[in-house]
Design a protein around this nucleic acid. Structure first.
Lengths: 230, 230
DNA sequence: TCTTGTTAGATTGTCGACAATCTGCTTGTC
DNA sequence: GACAAGCAGATTGTCGACAATCTAACAAGA
């Protein structure tokens, strides 16, 4: 059902633009899990040859949101409940670590940025813009990784985030009941501003406010169905 | 091993072969950090066109061992002491997590595999084959990740491993004094076989036997020098 | 001498065409 | 009707050539 229209590419290298376009299409759920990406069709829509498109797809395969089978095709990854569970549990461990690293580096700029990102989530919530809501929530949570001053950790988190964003978008899309939310991030932000690191870590480990539990339940409900064709 | 088990068919695409070749060249230090990869030259040497080579390079960029600057070139990543330190500290956290997940899944096959990999390290050590020594040591440590039954964690570890292997190979290469080792993995293996999970985790966190400290010292000693040209 | 503009060479980015491979349908046989 | 062989059609993988961009060497002018 992939009648998504791409607009022609503009500046910088085509490859980079293509990566951005495809990533966005996948993470917002415009390209559905399991869907095959037809190189010729996409290349024509973007007014681009297959070479940069294929290179872009190779990047996204390594990024973990596409999967490739030689001579068969490249597909959006399938989302299983196990995948989500795996990502969830690793995320908790990483959060705890990131908080530990960030803790003594916090300063006024950190708190300001924290508030700013928190506000962005609340704004998206008021706007009922669910896609942006997911995006901003993940950015809020990403702050501790950006401040942790550990490039490998940050990279790891960003890879995880891609998938998380895709999962959540999928979930939101399913129940077009759009708004989950009053302010679920309140506690998280307050603890990050406070003086009790252990409490913040505990909150991250036990109570994470991203609605994983519900997401998991949704994924399990999908598990029963057969895979869809083209 | 008397039961008939078919492994997947070999990847018959040139791209996959190229990825394997390049990765090996980088991880063994044949391609040095900072070095530029000339597409035309490499393509000619491999008797391959630039298309699959470029796709392969794109994969390795995402894998984190190459870095690319548009219209300038693709280079082997530079190794800084900070990078190693970052990877090291994240590795400790992940090890601890992997041990926790693996712990209750251990069975006889796990212990057998553990012994087998441990033996492989000792064999490589006896052979004075330092490259293989690094490789097998990392495979030994990778066992807990393979058993942890968390695909995202395994993927993360494998990405980390690429870099670690590169760092260690670099280090070994520098001091051609080849042998570090009597059996430094003894304690690690013994604890993984035992009944005290906390002790195993503590060992992973505090005492990891991969010679990180020495590696770090070496990297810091390099920090003073300027970058080299082609 | 220093700066600035130009130009030639080399290298990366992109394109269109061809080769290899897969998929599904058709055909022929039993 | 069931089944294997074989033939299109479509799609991915690879190639060689061209376009865009960078580098550095050189010349002209202050």
């Amino acid at each position: 059902m992939g009648k998504l229209d791409f607009s022609p590419i503009a500046d910088t290298t085509r490859r980079a633009e293509i990566v951005a376009l495809l990533r966005r299409a996948i993470l917002t759920g415009q390209l559905e899990p399991g869907q095959k990406l037809n190189e010729l069709r996409i290349a024509e829509q973007m007014r681009v040859s297959r070479a940069p498109l294929r290179e872009a797809m190779r990047e996204l395969v390594q990024e973990g949101i596409l999967t490739s089978i030689p001579y068969a095709g490249t597909f959006v990854i399938d989302v299983t409940a196990k995948d989500i569970d795996d990502a969830y549990s690793l995320n908790k461990v990483l959060d705890e670590f990131a908080i530990e690293l960030t803790w003594k580096l916090r300063d006024q700029r950190f708190f300001d940025d924290l508030d700013r990102r928190h506000e962005a989530v609340k704004q998206a919530t008021r706007d009922l813009d669910t896609t942006r809501q997911i995006e901003t929530a993940l950015q809020l949570h990403g702050l501790i990784y950006e401040w942790a001053d550990n490039s490998v950790l940050l990279e790891t988190w960003q890879r995880l985030t891609s998938r998380l964003q895709m999962y959540f978008a999928l979930h939101q899309r399913a129940r077009n009941e759009p708004v989950p939310s009053e302010d679920v991030h309140e506690t998280y932000v307050r603890l990050l501003k406070g003086n009790d690191m252990r409490a913040a870590q505990r909150h991250a480990r036990e109570h994470i406010d991203l609605d994983f539990e519900e997401l998991l339940a949704y994924a399990r409900s999908l598990e029963k169905r057969s895979s869809k064709g083209a």
